[in-house]
Design a protein around this nucleic acid. Structure first.
Lengths: 218, 218
DNA sequence: CCCAAATTAGTCAGCTCTGACTATTATACA
DNA sequence: TGTATAATAGTCAGAGCTGACTAATTTGGG
């Protein structure tokens, strides 16, 4: 947790974490061994075990690193400000996040965590952290007006209510569906850019916006 | 592939496959070792390696076994005949299949397959086999009238068209969303029976049925 | 400039897993 | 019933991984 002061040390940590994530993506959780990560990062055994006293510590840190990286990527692809809700654009940006670097490494860790209590304990808060960030990003994609009358995505008080039920439902539906669809590319030879559900997702967004503007014409 | 004639042999195979699947569920792919399966099944090392010459062969066979088992379970929970489409019932039955025995073992194999070309090659046709069966089951849940004017779920000729586009879209959306939602239970402490998306899914089905009966009142 | 602490480097024993091997037992068929 | 074949049993060497250990090097403060 504590940031190491030494520049060299931080560089080593960074290289190890990147190497660990690359390894998760390329060869999966089981074959992401300390030796594999260490040689991939060009770091000696002693350094690795000094920075991360065990394989588990390394992978837990990688998970955290991953989430931070994912949040940065998503921020970047959305841009700084809320946009007008163009269904195709919203769907496209969201779907990209399920095709990026961190998706498969996350899945590897999730699946490994299922049968590893220690890993699971650590991953749960990280996943929530990323989930909340994705929720906020989703709201930003829609723009404040559509996402929530009040502050975007805070629980919502009587004065400033959170997102409407239908907005939350749409968000959860899209995200779960994309996750489920992305998973099939573990073995499917198709190109994710041609995902057949893309149209369906866009239509859901269009329907939501249409329904909203007709019932709450404000 | 060839069914062994010997009764004893078949029993051993069956026990090994069941043990392999149980092991996948309980400890995951990486720790499903030949020794673990063998002792779980109460079978000697020689027997295992006679029946399945390698760990990979065992797990490939387990995948096939799994699919067959999954299809039987699904058949059973749907019942023999097409039913009237009650949205809550449809969603409930479908959601159950993502909480059953074979879901996690499938995921373990899918994820392992991503970084294992041999496994991937074998899993792809199996997944398609199960996928098509699920599609048919889905059509049966809706009843022939709603699923397809023609024969249920065959590609569809000009004479007997397949399911409508919107039906296919609904199906793919529900299945992908359920898969994506189910995945979070790898680490989430929630009870799948309380899955928040259940209402959303049911609403989608209701909307589809309503739209259908209004546009095609035939 | 020097020294203590931090960091990096390299080696090793212990463990587990896999698949090959040999031996034993059961089955099918003549 | 006898024998060839199939199935089951148990052992073992080789390979890979982890984490502990010792040694060398670099950094930062006095």
């Amino acid at each position: 947790m504590a940031e190491p002061q030494q520049a060299r040390s931080r560089d080593t940590r960074q290289r190890l974490l990147d190497a660990a994530i690359d390894s998760l993506i390329e060869v999966g959780y089981a074959r992401t061994t300390t030796v594999a990560v260490m040689s991939r990062a060009g770091v000696s055994r002693g350094s690795l075990l000094h920075q991360f006293p065990s394989r588990e510590a390394l992978l837990l840190a990688a998970m955290s690193h991953l989430v931070t990286e994912g949040m940065n990527d998503l921020s970047h692809s959305i841009g700084p400000e809320a946009r007008a809700p163009e269904p195709e654009h919203i769907v496209e940006v969201l779907w990209q996040t399920f095709r990026m670097r961190y998706f498969w490494s996350s899945i590897e860790l999730w699946v490994a965590a299922r049968t590893d209590p220690d890993l699971r304990r650590e991953i749960y808060p990280q996943a929530r952290r990323l989930g909340q960030f994705v929720d906020e990003a989703f709201s930003r994609l829609f723009g404040r007006d559509h996402a929530a009358p009040g502050t975007p995505d805070h629980p919502g008080t009587p004065d400033s209510p959170g997102p409407s039920d239908s907005f939350v439902a749409l968000r959860n539906l899209l995200i779960s569906s994309m996750r489920g669809a992305a998973l099939t590319y573990a073995f499917s030879p198709r190109d994710p850019a041609d995902e057949p559900l893309l149209n369906t997702w866009a239509q859901l967004v269009r329907d939501h916006l249409a329904r909203e503007s007709s019932t709450v014409p404000a």
